[in-house]
Design a protein around this nucleic acid. Structure first.
Lengths: 352, 352
DNA sequence: GGTTCCTCCTTAATCAATTAAGACCTTAAT
DNA sequence: ATTAAGGTCTTAATTGATTAAGGAGGAACC
């Protein structure tokens, strides 16, 4: 029907130049009060929607948005308390800078580099990208300020995360100090192939998610330093970070003979599932079995020993870095973690 | 340092027209393989970031993003399972259409209409907006396809939600059928003023959040139909949808004399807090006290009777409507809810 | 009376692309 | 030989704004 209303439409109708109309919206001091009122009145009559944001962005050279790249579909990402915590932190920074947060999903399987190529943003935050993902190149090609969170760490590119190796080591030393020698691992998110089952050393080392791979490596190194024969430690891997997956892993581990006295998990959600499996098997935690999580997301209510990862702080720091106006430092920024000892770990039961 | 690299830079360097370079990126069939290879090579050498998305958006007239307006800060919104479920649904639709999701926070207190004015999006989804919020005008001024979710319903504008009045009525009839006559209400999100305390009838009726107001009205109407003297029903309101708030409300309600035998909550998170308060007071649920939630978010694990609100479906439907290319129907779309009876409600205890 | 200053508005360049239509050349068909 | 048809590239209009620089006119000052 009616053709598009632009600044020019209004200018023609009022009988002034386009520039004047622009000033009426953005710089009231540049024209008389009377003319400005007339322009705004006509704009209202014509149903003008205000200066077109896309055209504005083009002219001003800023998009007013921060791009967040998830490699999971959102339904999955938002099922994870860790992701949500991170997102909350990022959102704080976005709000401070009065920019929007453009969420870009790179669903696993289908490659959609055009989503990254076409994103109208001023900066990118890349969240937990597996090794060799095509998105890496697509993002770097945009040559915008970019920060990688948790994984991967690419030397020379800005990165924020925790010291996964040290954190995992603390977990192992904690249970070893409590006398545990028969450990079991319940791990999620090592590979993209969706496999559930036992993961041998080769599979542990070839994990595609760097943070998880490092975490596992940290368990191993600390375990071997404490004299644990790592080749004999059962490792059960699952694909989705869900309580039900943790239960499955817990069942498998608890069915082993000898049964582990401590099960280490690489997320809290997994640990909750392991607790379920322990309850099913009639095992008391921590008397019969110690369980450790990772991330401190929802772990408090379950009285779970875990590593506290400053998820909000990570998000906020990433956001502030990107929105400060300065190019982000191309360095590896390590934020502090903390072992939180709660009621899910105790001295190992005496060998029966 | 080096000035910006655009299509023109490459065109000049290769010695062709800008159009040719554009075709090299977007329509390979429009030029010879050999020239295209040369153009791409030069583009690579110059560090060209690919066709500028903003310019592209302007020319093509599409932004490639769906704007989601939250009136809470994200940290708060993401603390609520209902919001997350809705977001998941919306994200499914966004992924289907291969567009991004631009999250626009309109924090309470500060008015930031410019965030809405400057958002580079093709459509808006407005989530749970309180009455009289300035964002309403800012969004309508953009004249983009827009859907309102949950509240407010503005006749003539597209809306998606459930039949709050009927749902609340079902809750009341459920407990009344179980013999309860002494009800108590623990409500969150009626007003923006942050008050915690008893809410009289006037305050109930003046709630600024339409969905919550309607929900309360539904409780009242069904209660009075069942012969409950509504003026004597204690209503405790809190500001933040947190378990701790629910606990506070629960404590207050359970300290009343006579003590309610059934407490109705307008969110599940509140109900969880009421369960905490009941446990503190040494009351058994459901023997001594029946508790009902709302939304079915995290209610299953707590074995909570609640209303199931199809949150994912609401999000998905909203997203599909907006991204279908057709203008959304300016109608009130009511999706089905369901009363889920679980173990938190039982027959009223005999008067002691 | 001339200069200066201020207010109010216009001119025109600029941001970085897309794409229909047309030009030019080569090859094939009649 | 003439026409037609492709293939390859260019021309130029278009998308909707922002803003530095400049001009016209009137008031104030010396």
């Amino acid at each position: 029907m009616a053709e598009r209303v632009t600044l020019q439409t209004i200018a023609d109708r009022v009988g002034v130049s386009r520039a004047t109309v622009s000033y009426a919206f953005s710089r009231p001091d540049q024209l008389s009060e009377e003319l400005r009122a007339r322009i705004l009145r006509v704009a209202g009559e014509l149903g003008y929607a205000g200066p077109n944001p896309t055209a504005r962005s083009l002219r001003l050279g800023r998009a007013g948005a921060l791009g967040l790249i998830f490699t999971e579909t959102l339904p999955y990402a938002f099922a994870d308390p860790y992701s949500i915590g991170f997102l909350q932190g990022l959102a704080v920074a976005a709000e401070e800078a009065a920019v929007g947060l453009l969420i870009l999903q790179q669903p696993p399987g289908v490659q959609r580099p055009e989503i990254v190529r076409n994103a109208v943003v001023d900066a990118f935050c890349v969240f937990s990208l597996p090794d060799g993902h095509a998105t890496l190149d697509a993002v770097l090609a945009r040559r915008l300020p970019t920060v990688f969170v948790d994984e991967p760490y690419v030397p020379g590119l800005p990165f924020i995360g925790i010291d996964e190796l040290a954190a995992a080591g603390e977990v192992v030393r904690h249970v070893v100090d409590l006398g545990h020698r028969r450990l079991g691992l319940a791990l999620v998110g090592l590979h993209q192939d969706g496999r559930h089952g036992w993961a041998d050393l080769r599979r542990q080392r070839s994990a595609e998610y760097e943070a998880m791979r490092t975490r596992v490596e940290g368990y191993r190194v600390a375990g071997e330093q404490a004299g644990v024969d790592w080749a004999s430690v059962p490792v059960y891997e699952v694909a989705g970070n869900a309580r039900e997956s943790g239960r499955e892993a817990g069942r498998a581990l608890l069915a082993r003979d000898p049964r582990p006295t401590a099960i280490l998990c690489n997320t809290d959600v997994m640990a909750l599932g392991v607790l379920d499996a322990a309850a099913e098997a009639g095992l008391k935690v921590p008397e019969d079995l110690s369980v450790v999580g990772f991330s401190d997301s929802g772990a408090e209510e379950a009285d779970l020993t875990t590593i506290r990862q400053p998820k909000q702080l990570i998000g906020q720091t990433a956001g502030r870095m990107l929105l400060s106006g300065l190019p982000p430092e191309p360095e590896r920024l390590i934020l502090p973690h903390e072992l939180i000892v709660r009621g899910s770990t105790a001295r190992a039961p005496l060998p029966s």
